[in-house]
């Protein structure tokens, strides 16, 4: 069986198992957390494509996620567009934003890309938080154009609340699952498809690859833009799921959390980031008791994994498999 076929089958199998979960587990908290897992799964699979496959050391991923979330909230809030329509629109806006960022950064060398994308993310954050001039004055008080420190709320939802009442979160679970499956399928298509091959060629033999007309910049921009679509969609769904969008999506802690998922799972692999997302969310759940130490633990996990296990858990498994042969 070809690796691509195997990966697709694994994805379908996982999707079926996960689709059965709400039939067995009725606890709202667990279902909601799993919905959040789907959101993070989308973000890390797409970020992984950028970092691990295309070799773009971008730290703008959470900023793009935020663009998706904010665009959804703002379209719904200011123009009363239904959230279900605002979501794909927001994803396209995210793609546009990513292309601007990509055009500015991608011609630069690795470390420059990391610094500039981080700086751009920080600028977006500062613009959102520092803008205190009232744009509108709803009953809840002054609201700056980008929501300011408080952010947006009450911009509508996907409509499942009206349809299903208190069970709406199950519908959100399935929406999240569907989006995550799409994102993972997309990631398989990139990694196993021609783009993945092109990047492998660029890594292994840059001179030959370029002489065959493989333009690194062009391919990187493609991956950057396409992965921004799902990242933006994940942000949009985050907005719809929680009904609130605030500057917390820009926080360094959140960036750290998601980056750790990729590093722990294994950068550049299809399933590593998903494994990392699941493990870190479980660990985070476990550390809820010692909340104060959460960020210290997260920082340690990140540093220790990069230093001692740079290929992540997926790397360990691969090495074992090779040794077994």
């Amino acid at each position: 069986m070809s690796p691509a076929k195997r990966d697709v089958l694994v994805c379908i199998g996982l999707a079926i198992v996960l689709a059965l979960v709400p039939l067995v587990i009725g606890t709202r908290y667990i279902i909601t957390q799993m919905t959040l897992f789907f959101i993070w799964a989308i973000v890390v699979t797409q970020w992984n494509l950028v970092l691990g496959v295309a070799g773009i050391f971008s730290l703008a991923q959470m900023a793009l996620f935020a663009v998706g979330a904010y665009a959804t909230a703002m379209l719904a809030y200011y123009f009363a567009i239904p959230v279900i329509v605002a979501m794909p629109a927001a994803a396209l806006i995210t793609v546009a934003a990513s292309l601007v960022i990509g055009a500015a950064c991608l011609r630069l060398r690795g470390p420059y890309v990391a610094l500039l994308t981080l700086a751009i993310a920080q600028v977006i954050y500062l613009v959102v938080v520092n803008d205190t001039a009232c744009f509108t004055n709803p009953p809840s008080g002054c609201l700056p154009l980008f929501g300011g420190v408080r952010g947006f709320s009450r911009f509508g939802d996907l409509g499942f609340r009206a349809l299903l009442g208190s069970k709406f979160y199950v519908a959100h679970y399935y929406v999240g699952l569907s989006l995550a499956v799409l994102a993972v399928m997309f990631s398989i298509a990139i990694i196993r498809g021609p783009l993945g091959l092109a990047f492998k060629a660029l890594r292994d033999n840059p001179g030959y690859a370029m002489s065959r007309g493989i333009s690194k910049f062009k391919y990187q921009l493609w991956v950057f833009g396409l992965s921004a679509f799902f990242t933006g969609l994940a942000g949009a769904f985050y907005a719809a799921q929680f009904g609130v969008v605030g500057p917390i999506v820009f926080s360094i802690a959140m960036l750290l959390f998601l980056l750790s998922m990729i590093v722990v799972g294994g950068m550049g692999t299809i399933w590593g980031p998903l494994l990392g997302a699941a493990l870190l969310m479980l660990a985070d759940e476990g550390m809820r008791e010692v909340g104060d130490w959460r960020d210290i633990g997260l920082g340690l996990v990140l540093a220790v994994f990069v230093i001692l296990l740079p290929k992540g858990l997926a790397g360990v498994r691969l090495r074992r498999a090779k040794a077994g042969l």
Binding site: G110, A114, L302, A303, V306, I307, P310
Partner: peptide, 14 residues
């Protein structure tokens, strides 16, 4: 370059 960048992000957070 990538690894030390990520590792020092972690160390900085700690």
């Amino acid at each position: 370059e990538t690894q030390i960048f990520i590792a020092t992000i972690g160390i900085g957070a700690v």
